[in-house]
Design a protein around this nucleic acid. Sequence first.
DNA 1: ACATGAGCCTGTGGGC
DNA 2: TGCCCACAGGCTCATG
Length: 282
Amino acid sequence: MPELPEVETVREGLKLYLEGQTIAKVDIFTSKLRWMLPTHLAQSLSEQTITAISRRGKYLLLEVSNGNYLIIHLGMSGSFAIHSTHGFPHYISEKRHQHDHVVFHLLNGTVITYNDPRKFGMMDLVAGHNLRTYPRLKLLGMEPLGNGFDEVYLTKQLKKRTSPVKNVLLDQKVIAGIGNIYASESLWRAGISPMQKANRVTHKKVGNLVIAIREVLNDAIKSGGSTLRNYRSIAGNLGYFQHQFSVYDQEGKPCKTPNCTSLIKRIVQTGRSTFYCPSCQK
DNA sequence: ACATGAGCCTGTGGGC
DNA sequence: TGCCCACAGGCTCATG
């Protein structure tokens, strides 16, 4: 579920409550999410101070004072909740919510819970000097909001591929952080058919696509930021936010392009839903 | 090298 | 109401 904008929103929320704070203890209630959790996870994190929280694609990276990194991926259904001593409901261990798998107790009394019904998320601990070679991070492609992501890079990547351009946008080795929602949204905004073969997207449209991807992701991050401020005042839940999508999950609704009279279509590409406007996207 | 499909899990919503 | 099925925003692995 969470794509780059949602993960970025979670990062901002965690940063507010975790950065500079010391972990008193970690309780783990499951041995395995997507993969086994490191057996030493709880022990390695206790008494560590969280020095920085960053993001790479859909991965969160928490740096702690002994130089280790806690790597987190939210999978499809992972989320964090904050239980601080001021404002939010206190964490009561006897009332642990279903699917709360990992609970971080900070020295200052704040409790951060990780909840994940489908257990498609992951957590791992990596030494700082091994971060560069960590396989799951090493293979990631360009950050779409970074400086290096431009027409030259995307053209080069798309030229190599004959599969539908939508599938290439989902490939984390090409662009890190785009998922099924923002792939559809970006292509609609750029006026590109999701079925178009990647290597046949015209030069001009690749330029449009770079801009569209940036805009779509930045708009969603803005929307997440405002939701985050809402959540903070309500429940402290760092989950996902409602965003007004142009095409995603809009099958049968009118296309939002001015003067376009077409209805949004849904197709399935490699087992996943794609939404697009048959008139605006060629 | 590339593409495809199965599998990991649980929850939800629609149709009957 | 309950039951069954399809489906869900991610990723990896095996296979072709």
